[in-house]
Design a protein around this nucleic acid. Structure first.
Lengths: 201, 201
DNA sequence: CAGTATTAACCGTCCATTCGGTCGGTTGGC
DNA sequence: GCCAACCGACCGAATGGACGGTTAATACTG
């Protein structure tokens, strides 16, 4: 099945795909079959154009990947910065960060999905992993601070708590598919994470 | 860097790798670079033998993958069955299932890691995904039952609670590396999951 | 205990196909 | 007539896999 080239109106030149629309289809395909499992020929077929036409929009396959993961990382660092500028106890900033991360995850689902599957084979992937680890460290520091403030249980290594917390958050990419009319997923995640799985009494 | 062929003593034929030892190295490599990102030549180089020698042990690259993911799935279904045969409230069986899953995850870390990254490109991968979904359904049913018994908060869709719970559990493959002397990770996970992140009072 | 099967691991070479990518030329809407 | 989108032919390298022959251990036999 091919994807129709949805050209934005009011553009010069011959209508068809632009970089943005190519990227969207590419990322979707990368997520379905894996980056290495998707050939440029596969992508071309899906787009309904030839392989060489893709190279008019983007210089390399790696560049497609870079554009995608950067979009995810920029979103995550955006909320991390917001959370850092906040006042109040660490636990509240942490909850803000969790809710914000979920929002980014949902809003840029295909991009974050791709990011979280990067292995580190090439420079582009290693750079992405480096930035991602930076983000993880911000989270870990915040959890550690919240523990020192007495709002996170002290009998578990805060680094592990942070991992488990964002393990839960990041799992969204595996199963969450936004539907209109469903309750706010960020709220659900925050509730399970911060209030626990058991019923409140 | 090549891996030394650790032959078990008292075996017939020329010493060297057998299927098991090839599989171990292969799975490790698949996890580092991704299945599609690892060529049989890469694997051969790592093993210190030629590519054709690998095909003496295994008929295809896909078969290596099948062996690996089956080992993971067999482990998970093992504890699922155990949990099913248990008596007592659903919440207790669920905790048993979580602890058991963590144990399998840690014990068969490389195999489960590979399983959780399978995309569904080939028949082998689709079969694995089918079995995995079966396991997820078992978990979801158990969570739903525990909710009906009043031990899981009713204001969140049990299917989502199940996803988040095992999202947390499965995240172990991304960061947990067993070290001797550290506290039982299954216990830590169960505590965070069932008692929550906040301090007990 | 010598010699011979038997067994399993391994090598070298080859092959059809697919890979990411290049290049010069063409098409079609503003 | 400008310009972005696109085509088709092509390239060198890498891919998974096939195949026939070789080597080094143990097991069986007289």
């Amino acid at each position: 099945m091919t994807t129709a080239p949805h050209t934005k109106a009011g553009r010069r030149g011959r209508p068809g795909y632009d970089l943005e629309s190519v990227l969207l289809v590419a990322v979707k395909l990368f997520n379905e079959r894996g980056y290495d499992g998707t050939s440029m020929e596969d992508l071309a077929r899906k787009l309904g154009i030839t392989k060489s036409a893709i190279y008019h929009h983007v210089p390399s396959k790696q560049e497609l990947l870079r554009l995608a993961v950067d979009r995810a990382l920029d979103g995550l660092f955006g909320v991390a910065e917001e959370a850092g500028n906040l006042a109040g106890p660490a636990i509240e900033r942490l909850e803000f960060l969790v809710r914000g991360s979920v929002a980014v995850l949902v809003d840029r689902l295909p991009f974050v999905t791709l990011l979280l599957r990067v292995r580190g084979n090439t420079k582009v992937e290693r750079d992405a992993l480096t930035r991602r680890r930076e983000f993880d460290r911000i989270v870990a520091d915040l959890v550690a601070l919240a523990e020192r403030e007495g709002d996170i249980r002290p009998d578990v290594d805060p680094a592990i708590t942070a991992r488990l917390l964002f393990g839960m958050v990041n799992s969204l990419i595996e199963w969450y598919r936004p539907k209109r009319g469903d309750t706010d997923i960020a709220d659900t995640v925050a509730r399970i994470a911060f209030e626990g799985m058991r019923p409140r009494r």
